[in-house]
């Protein structure tokens, strides 16, 4: 049963989540809480289940065991209204995944118009504001194929924001970008975080995680090995696996 959620409770509450693909258990009992306005960074080696965890949060993949609650609503519930969940949770992917047959502006407008059935003029005004916000003024009518990776990723962020989500999930959104454009995207995410958006970021940008993260989680082979605020996490990690990972990457 869902009890009414209040903002003082975790906005995302993950408890002992297990997830297998066939015989392979990818998540082996993961628990973490995200509070409203918090920025959570998840780091860890490739294949440790970071993307899978994010995708479980907005029900793109089902879980085998445990519980994930978003604003008090159990995501694992078969009777879940997926639309309600996805209005609350925005997601940005490593490979941008824009709709290639739509312009930047149309990409941002699609979901509010077709999914939320909001009036077109109002959505267009909002979409133009969002494109300005991600610093892409003038690129409204460009197709994804005409934009750089960093520009596409910022359109993708604007597209998610157009649904007015309460939480944003970022899955290695800068991993496919060259160092110069990484900065543009990070600036956009930082602004969002500063405005109080709840963010869950999977990232390999340690410096960035350290700077904007309120809490850092380190995952390895389907479990959370260690977590803590950045100040202590990066300087005094206790687990040898964390230390090995950090020494490799820093």
């Amino acid at each position: 049963m869902t009890t009414a959620w209040t903002p003082d409770q975790p906005i995302v509450s993950i408890k002992d989540v297990h997830k297998s693909f066939g015989p392979i258990e990818v998540l082996k009992g993961v628990s973490l809480d995200v509070r409203k306005g918090e920025v959570i960074c998840i780091i860890g080696p490739s294949g440790s289940g970071k993307s899978t965890l994010l995708r479980c949060i907005n029900a793109l993949v089902p879980i085998n065991q445990g519980s994930i609650k978003v604003e008090g609503q159990e995501v694992h519930d078969p009777a879940l209204d997926k639309l309600e969940l996805r209005k609350k949770v925005g997601m940005v992917f490593q490979s941008y995944n824009l709709f290639p047959h739509k312009t930047a502006l149309e990409n941002v407008m699609m979901a509010p118009v077709h999914v939320l059935k909001r009036p077109k003029e109002e959505v267009e005004a909002q979409a133009r504001r969002l494109i300005k916000k991600v610093r892409l003024e003038g690129k409204e009518d460009a197709y994804p194929g005409e934009l750089s990776g960093g520009q596409q990723q910022r359109v993708a962020i604007a597209r998610s924001l157009a649904m007015n989500p309460d939480i944003m999930l970022f899955d290695e959104v800068t991993a496919a970008l060259d160092p110069e454009t990484v900065k543009e995207v990070l600036v956009t995410i930082r602004e969002l975080a500063e405005e109080g958006m709840t963010c869950v970021l999977v990232t390999h940008e340690m410096g960035f995680a350290r700077e904007i993260g309120d809490h850092i989680y380190f995952t390895d082979r389907g479990i959370i090995v260690e977590h803590g605020p950045p100040a202590t996490f990066f300087t005094s990690a206790s687990d040898p696996r964390t230390r090995a990972f950090l020494s490799q990457i820093l």
Binding site: N58, R86, G90, M91, F99, A111, V115
Partner: peptide
Amino acid sequence: EAAESLGF
């Protein structure tokens, strides 16, 4: 998947 995550 992106469309799905947008609520389509």
